[in-house]
Simulated scan of single mutants.
Amino acid sequence: MSLQWEDKEVHFDIPYSKMRLILGEKVIDKLDNIEDTKGNGGDKGRMIITNIRLLWHSLRTPRVNLSIGFNCILSSSTKIVNSRLKGTTQALQLLTISNGTRYEFIFTNLIPGNTRHFTSVMGVHKAYNSSKLYRELRLRGGVVHNKQLKILPQEQVVSTLHGVWNLSSDQGSLGTFTVSNVRFVWFADVNEGFNISLPYLQIESICIRDSKFGTALVITSSEMSGGYILGFKVDPEEKLQNLFKELTSLHTVYTTKPIFGVEFQSYSGKDDVESNNNLTEEYEVLEDLKGEISNTITAYLADEGHTKDEIPVYSPELGLAVERIKEGYTIQKLWEVIPS
């Protein structure tokens, strides 16, 4: 298993099924009276900040919503804007990129003097960026110091095995294999900078196979992390089997309860904390209207770097030459976003 699109993409007007929390996702803060000033000015909404993304939906029309993965955010700052509901005020500005397209989002807290959304979004985004070892493969990273693993805040070391051969080269390299509750790490004895850290989130499969070095432990990383095939030689056979069982068991446990490593202490009150637990129930009652889309997507575009137009192509639907449509869009969908 691995995170799919939730933390890596921006989505507009998604069905409630995609707004529900996935395994390992937790609500950190939730705020009402938040205006999506750029795309839905004049519309009160609710902002939900989780450990992997930012959600917003209109209180009047819940199917008008946003999902912004924290991995998409290029920068977060404050900006003076003119809100339809609050007038001239300071707002939160997010510049993002998703599937090659840049978007700008502006959120205004309609409660006078309340800037909690600044603190929460910026704080969680910082925590997300500083915890990537929980979610991403690292090759030759700074994960070991003086032959000791640098343990992450929520990490617990389960076992450490010396004398493990990494079979990535023709000769193999002898090193140390450490297993924890969130990842495994191997590093070479002669050069600790030659290492690999692979979280269970990015493991596709674990098996025992024959190799030119004999029976080996083979771990395949997910396609999203590069699809690496990693081989390790452990002697005697009993130790190899024990390591295989241990990794398989920990991977299975992790799959049912992932740890993304994003920790941030919210300043929300007791009522907010209690309502966070009912988030998925709230989305159960929203209409799942397929094919509908709000009339504001183009308002979010932030293509300051645009220098020249695409080569036009013929559109049989319109009978005209038009700019090439971006992947995932159709003429019909683009027509629907034009305000009537």
Rank of each mutant, 00 (worst) to 15 (best):
I311P: 09
L110Y: 10
H162Q: 15
Q241H: 12
V143E: 11
L198A: 11
L174S: 14
E204H: 10
N278F: 14
Q202A: 11
S275N: 08
V144F: 07
V218H: 10
L149P: 01
E6L: 03
G305W: 05
K38G: 07
I52M: 06
V144K: 00
F118G: 01
G172L: 04
D288P: 05
N146M: 09
K308D: 14
K79W: 10
L250C: 04
G227W: 07
E292D: 09
L279S: 04
E304W: 14
S159A: 06
Y228C: 05
V81H: 00
P236G: 07
I49A: 04
V158W: 02
L137Q: 02
S275K: 06
T101K: 11
E136K: 07
E223I: 14
D189A: 12
I311A: 12
K79L: 08
Y300C: 01
V121G: 00
D272Y: 06
L230C: 10
T307R: 13
N276P: 04
E6M: 03
G113F: 12
S2Y: 01
T101F: 13
T37G: 04
S249L: 14
L334N: 06
E238H: 06
F118A: 04
N166S: 11
L279K: 02
T115Q: 10
F177M: 01
L23P: 05
Y300I: 01
I338Y: 01
K308Q: 15
G226Q: 08
D32Q: 12
S120V: 12
E238I: 09
H306V: 14
G24S: 05
K333D: 13
V144G: 03
E223Y: 14
V81Q: 05
T88S: 15
K38A: 10
Y254T: 01
T176P: 02
I22G: 04
E9Q: 14
D210E: 15
I48L: 13
T101I: 14
N278C: 06
S275H: 06
E274V: 10
E136P: 06
I229K: 15
L23G: 03
P258V: 07
E136G: 05
W335R: 15
R84C: 14
P258Q: 02
L133E: 11
M19Y: 08
L149S: 02
N114Y: 00
T307Y: 13
R209Y: 11
L23I: 05
E192F: 14
S75E: 09
L21E: 00
V313F: 08
T255Y: 08
H117P: 02
I14P: 02
K30I: 15
R324C: 02
E25M: 07
F177W: 01
S98A: 07
K26D: 12
S58E: 00
M122A: 08
G305Y: 09
P153T: 00
E204D: 12
G319W: 03
S211I: 11
S130C: 14
G42I: 06
